[in-house]
Amino acid sequence: MSVGTRVRHRAWQGGIMAAALLALVMTLLLAPSEARAEYGDVVMNNYSDEADMRPVVFPHWFHRIRFRCKVCHGDLGFEFEAGGNEINMLKIIDGEYCGACHNGNIAWGVENCELCHTGKPGTETQVHGSTLKRLVTPASQSQ
């Protein structure tokens, strides 16, 4: 084997090793990032990212154990649409939407920012696990 051949051979080996290592690292990085949050969890990010706050994650399951759908979707005026209610902190402090309960009386008050604003920054407004989201999300990125 000439010196030139050996150098080319080494370079080729190094390339394969690097590619394989890259594939492994990518896989390990990508696998845990799959979202598998609860069906019906609503992420609200109408204004949060802009305001440098984490988006809000609303767990439907937690609330439906305590209240029937009608309480929020009838009496409090929540539309059946993620991000369709234009909720902001001013309205909540005035007792509208979430503020009807989250006033320190029925549930924790607005000073507990971190308990509602728990989403990963940059997460889009969505109903997690919804049929529509599954239909439009490629399999590789889905839960």
Binding site: A35, R54, P59, W61, F62, E114, H117, T118, K120
Partner: peptide, 24 residues
């Protein structure tokens, strides 16, 4: 299924609040 908030990919595990929430 029914992963705890800190592991569900939507909640930010770096947020203190995430770890205070009830797990499904």
């Amino acid at each position: 299924r029914n992963a705890p908030p800190a592991e569900d990919g939507i909640h930010d595990a770096a947020s203190e609040g995430t770890h205070m929430l009830q797990t499904p």
